[in-house]
């Protein structure tokens, strides 16, 4: 989903770059105020973790594979704005050092994978969670839905950017991108929930979005 240079028009890249710069600037400003000295190195470690996790391909069907995005997992673990910072760091390194994703398309890529994938994905997570039981199962279900949506929406944003730039007609590219990513999103949902259940088994205190009910109450809520 990393858009290379020359696909998306200058106007689209400029617009997404402005939005991304404002959002990332806000996230960095808030991080500097709220993060304790302890968390700043941990945030960098998390970015390195997302980078490494993206290298583990997951199977889709008969040998084809997709790769993990991780925006929603990061958002559930450490909050949406920190997740945006983490995704931005990952995308900047991928772009500047590995030439993965275009330099002029950096704004679009941060917009798609950080803002849509991370912030919008987390908004969906919060909204869905409100409608579900406040149990571990409800939490996981909301995570799964939001992880799937974060990948599908990011791919749709990517398709819209390509269409506005006049590279491909919207109808064709939107169907193709969303179709493929509906499947990749299923993988993202499986991976995000599986990873989260491991973290919750070992260190539930690290899952920022999970505030367990007081001890005793949660036992009764779960049959």
């Amino acid at each position: 989903m990393h858009i290379p240079d020359a696909y998306v028009s200058g106007q689209v890249n400029a617009a997404t770059a402005v939005v991304s710069a404002v959002a990332v600037g806000l996230a960095a400003w808030r991080a500097r105020r709220t993060l304790g000295e302890r968390q700043a190195p941990l945030l960098g470690m998390t970015a390195a973790f997302v980078f490494a996790a993206q290298m583990l391909n997951f199977p889709i069907a008969g040998g084809t594979s997709g790769h993990f995005l991780g925006a929603l997992l990061a958002a559930v673990l450490m909050g949406p704005l920190n997740a945006l910072l983490v995704m931005t760091v990952v995308l900047v390194i991928q772009c500047l050092v590995f030439a993965d994703g275009g330099l002029t398309a950096l704004g679009s890529n941060i917009f798609n994978m950080g803002i849509i994938g991370g912030l919008a994905g987390y908004a969906i997570f919060s909204a869905v969670r409100r409608f579900l039981a406040q149990t571990r199962r409800g939490f996981m279900a909301a995570t799964a839905v939001a992880a799937w949506a974060s990948v599908v929406l990011a791919s749709a944003a990517c398709a819209v950017e390509l269409a506005i730039s006049g590279v491909v007609p919207l109808r064709g590219v939107l169907g193709a991108m969303v179709g493929v990513h509906a499947l990749i999103g299923a993988g993202e949902a499986i991976i995000t929930t599986a990873a989260l259940s491991v973290v919750m088994a070992g260190r539930p205190d690290l899952v920022g979005a999970w505030q367990p009910a007081p001890v005793g109450a949660s036992k009764e809520a779960q049959p």
Binding site: A194, A195, L206
Partner: peptide, 27 residues
């Protein structure tokens, strides 16, 4: 041998363990 989508669970647990290890290293 991950070949199908439902094998992604294993990769997911691996990623969860990777997070715990990287967080401990971070601390």
């Amino acid at each position: 041998t991950g070949r199908w989508l439902w094998h992604a669970r294993t990769v997911g647990r691996m990623i969860g363990a990777l997070f715990l290890r990287s967080h401990q290293r971070g601390e």
